[in-house]
Design a binder for these strands. Structure first.
Length: 592
DNA sequence: GCCGTTTTCGGCCCGACTGTTTTCAGTCG
């Protein structure tokens, strides 16, 4: 059983225990265990299991270590199978309904025999739910709505779609005269590849007109909460947007809190407690003494307790002995330890990008010509543009055959010689990796190119072993410069093909092949979660927009966001190198 | 179920909003 499958089992145990009404801290322990497994490297995990040292991992104790070991060695877990069998499958899907949690599910099951969405719907229609103690007409209506929209509401949204929705809201809030400050937070600010909802924070001396504007703005389908300090709306896309109104003195604390992640916040609060302080969205106050954190924060505001003024996130981190942690790193994956040791990376920025390698033209499945792409790259200030159209086996994308790519190479050479654009164009290919790992072009063709991207576009259903061997064989080819989209995933649409990422990363390092961070908003592949360790071991990254038109070139910015989440600095990223370096490296045929 | 430079037991982040209540439980983030 793979690492991620084991993590999935632990997470599911957490859900099942929750439905059983188990101690919430036990539930959390399983959730933590699942996340820890996801974050650990597969080879390291195997080593720890073999050595019996799993318990040395923070978050994994005796019980979880035993269960993980059982899963790893037998592929099964008796505890899990028994638990799963004891709980009707339909109960789990009830959790998808907005406003319905474990307690309500237990009540519905105990008193009405509800153990599926269908039965819950039927019970609502007869009015039985409204008659239940603790429920009422409103609850019943909300459940009916929740059932009707559960797919739309549960859906996550691509980061760039969420950003497109958030930008005008943020601008609208900032345009209100009552608003002192408005910021976005949440997974959008952390630049997660997908976003579940939008979070906006506002400080104002006059909340009512701000909340009223927020719930009445265009694009709002439904108002789900409308209080004095908080409002929630459902946008027509199904995306939920939350607005929170925060006094100016507490803005920084709230901004940090609602940026998350949850794991990061828990670790920050634990760190604060270790220093006799209590951190919340209200402030950073002494942990001891009477009263809630909020009350203490308010006292502090009035100058009744000792406390240094904290006016920025930098000062907030500093108060806990930490360097500023960029939002992209706040995933609870070691950033606090790094910040403590002054070992945070200087993350790559959009301005560091000098060029892009993987782009298409009308020669294959792009929508703009070579010259149009070059002009657009120049307008973006890029020093170089790599053209990598598809190769002949990608028939669906009108892949180039030998004659057409020869003509394209000549056209690129002529364009560069003409001096028409300051941006230099490199002639490349996105060469198909054939099902057996051979390349789609003969060596003589590849030798004519400035560089070669290799990608999988066929036979997605190969076994993990076959696919891994196939990709490694392709990377061993002496003409290969970089590997395109590692898994071929399309976010929220299609899982990637099965691979052993560690093995492929090792092979890429060994053969000095670069792996691409495909910055297309549906891809962001290789995943940010893999980059940190890979780069530490020496893997080089190319942030490539995989642009199919001139507008798509700007997608490299999404790739920078993902690279930042992967702890990458500009030293790790080949496309942050100036053109002169690139030319020299490409002449040597290998970059890494 | 995990964890410990206050602890091997007793904690575990904590507040807003809603709906159902008439003081609070459940859900959510």
């Amino acid at each position: 059983m793979t690492k991620n499958e084991m993590a999935g089992v632990l997470a599911e145990i957490g859900v099942l225990l929750e439905l059983n009404g188990e101690n919430p801290f036990k539930v959390r322990a399983y959730q933590t265990g699942a996340r820890v497994l996801e974050a650990i490297e597969e080879a390291e995990l195997v080593r720890l299991i073999a050595a019996g040292e799993l318990e040395s991992v923070k978050g994994i104790g005796e019980a979880l270590a035993k269960k993980i070991t059982e899963l790893h060695t037998t592929g099964r877990l008796g505890f899990y199978e028994k638990l799963k069998a004891s709980i009707p499958h339909g109960l789990v899907e009830l959790l998808q309904i907005s406003g319905v949690g474990p307690k309500k599910i237990r009540a519905l099951q105990a008193k009405l025999g509800v153990d599926s969405i269908a039965k819950l719907q039927a019970a609502c229609e007869t009015g039985a739910v409204a008659a239940l103690e603790g429920f009422g007409e409103k609850s019943q209506e909300k459940i009916i709505e929740g059932i009707r929209h559960r797919e739309k509401y549960a859906r996550r949204h691509l980061w760039f779609e969420a950003w497109a929705a958030a930008e005008p809201i943020l601008a609208g809030l900032r345009g209100l005269t009552q608003v002192l400050r408005a910021e976005h937070a949440g997974s959008l600010r952390r630049r997660m590849e997908t976003v579940g909802d939008l979070d906006f924070l506002v400080s104002t001396s006059d909340p009512k007109p701000v909340v009223d504007w927020f719930v009445a703005q265009g694009g709002v389908a439904e108002v789900t909460a409308h209080g004095e300090t908080k409002a929630s709306v459902r946008l027509q896309s199904g995306l939920q947007a939350d607005l929170r109104l925060i006094p100016q003195e507490q803005f920084v604390f709230a901004w940090h809190h609602f940026t998350g992640s949850k794991d990061h916040n828990i670790q920050m609060r634990q760190r604060a407690l270790g220093r006799g302080l209590s951190l919340s969205e209200w402030g950073l106050v002494p942990a001891a003494g009477e009263g809630t954190a909020k009350e203490k924060a308010e006292k502090q505001k009035d100058g009744k307790t000792e406390g240094k003024e904290i006016a920025s996130e930098t000062e907030l981190f500093a108060a806990l002995g930490l360097k500023f942690i960029p939002p992209e790193l706040r995933e609870g994956l070691g950033e606090i330890e790094a910040a403590e040791q002054g070992a945070l990376p200087v993350l790559i920025e959009e301005a560091d990008i000098r060029g892009v390698f993987h782009n298409h033209t009308t020669a294959s499945d792009g929508h703009n010509t070579l010259e149009e792409m070059a002009a657009a790259a120049q307008a973006l200030g890029l020093e170089y543009l790599g053209i990598a159209d598809h190769s002949k086996s990608s028939v669906q994308a009108r892949g180039l055959d030998e004659a057409r790519i020869a003509a394209q190479i000549a056209a690129i050479r002529r364009l560069n010689a003409s001096g028409k654009f300051r941006t230099h164009v490199f002639a490349g290919t996105e060469c198909d990796i054939l099902p057996d790992g051979r390349l789609d072009f003969a060596d003589e063709v590849l030798a004519e190119l400035d560089y070669v991207v290799v990608s999988v576009h066929s036979a997605f259903k190969q076994s993990r072993e076959a696919m891994t061997a196939r990709i490694i064989r392709a990377m061993e080819h002496p003409h290969v410069t970089m590997l395109g989209h590692l898994t071929g995933r399309l976010l929220l649409q299609r899982e990637g093909y099965e691979i052993d990422a560690d093995k492929i990363i090792d092979a890429a390092i060994a053969h000095r092949v670069v792996i691409e961070l495909n910055a297309n908003p549906w891809r962001l592949d290789m995943d940010w979660r893999l980059w940190r360790r890979a780069a530490e071991r020496g893997l080089m990254c190319a942030i490539n927009p995989d642009a199919h038109d001139t507008a798509g070139l700007t997608d490299f910015r999404l790739g920078v966001g993902a690279a930042r989440k992967g702890w990458l600095t500009k030293e790790h990223v080949i496309t942050a190198r100036p053109r002169a370096d690139i030319r020299r490296l490409l002449v040597e045929r290998k970059i890494g």
